[in-house]
Nucleic acid binder design. Structure first.
Length: 201
DNA sequence: GCTTAGATACGCT
DNA sequence: GCGTATCTAAGCT
């Protein structure tokens, strides 16, 4: 699919990613899901971002690549995945935080060691889809093991505060987290489940 | 079902 | 050493 929507504005790109389908092939096994939850991280001026004030380290180097790059990092023994937006001068990206599983559900269950809550959190979805830093970090969408394609369209999009970024002063209040309203495959929130999981018909 | 505490390990300094 | 854009299980209701 055409990825140029990732080039312009990160907040718009974040919302546009909701409903898109992610497909991974790890160890020859296919898994896929629709994106239900994302967060935007706006580089230089965002105190919660890894690249705040142009901070550049080995870890966040991939944030300084152009749109369509995959950035994976580890924390607390888990992996988190971002899709980079914009260009080399704008270290911005979108953290993928939730997926509604579609294909390879049995594999996802095996990788997670449980039957549900397979991808309703950033560490959970990387685990169930086999996304590891050593394989995926620095790859590009649709040119490597990860494919982005059209999927569903959200009925309505809900904006909220980002998760897990206490101690980041005013940045904690930015409404840079976006979820598909009524979809249960999201972290934290208590969701009143909607018809069709909140997707347009 | 909800809230909380503690485990966790990796990359970077 | 230390900080971390997390997860799980326990304990309660």
């Amino acid at each position: 699919m055409d990825l140029s929507f990732l080039e312009k504005d990160t907040l718009t790109a974040a919302k546009a990613l909701l409903g898109k389908k992610i497909t991974t092939v790890t160890d020859g096994i296919v898994t896929s899901g629709y994106i239900t939850e994302v967060e935007a991280y706006l580089g230089l001026e965002d105190k919660a971002a890894h690249a705040y004030q142009g901070r550049r380290t080995k870890k966040n180097e991939m944030m300084y690549r152009s749109y369509g790059t995959v950035y994976v990092y580890t924390m607390h023994g888990h992996h988190c995945m971002n899709f980079i937006t914009k260009d080399e001068c704008s270290p911005e990206g979108v953290l993928i935080r939730g997926l509604e599983p579609v294909e390879g559900i049995e594999v996802m269950q095996a990788r997670r060691g449980r039957l549900d809550h397979l991808a309703d959190g950033p560490g959970k979805l990387t685990q169930s889809m086999g996304i590891r830093r050593d394989i995926y970090n620095g790859t590009r969408l649709n040119e490597g093991p990860l494919t982005l394609s059209e999927g569903k369209v959200p009925g309505s999009i809900k904006a909220s505060k980002r998760i897990g970024i206490d101690n980041k002063e005013e940045a904690v209040d930015y409404l840079y987290r976006f979820t598909v309203e009524g979809n249960p495959h999201v972290s934290k929130d208590r969701v009143e489940k909607a018809e069709f999981n909140g997707w347009q018909q």
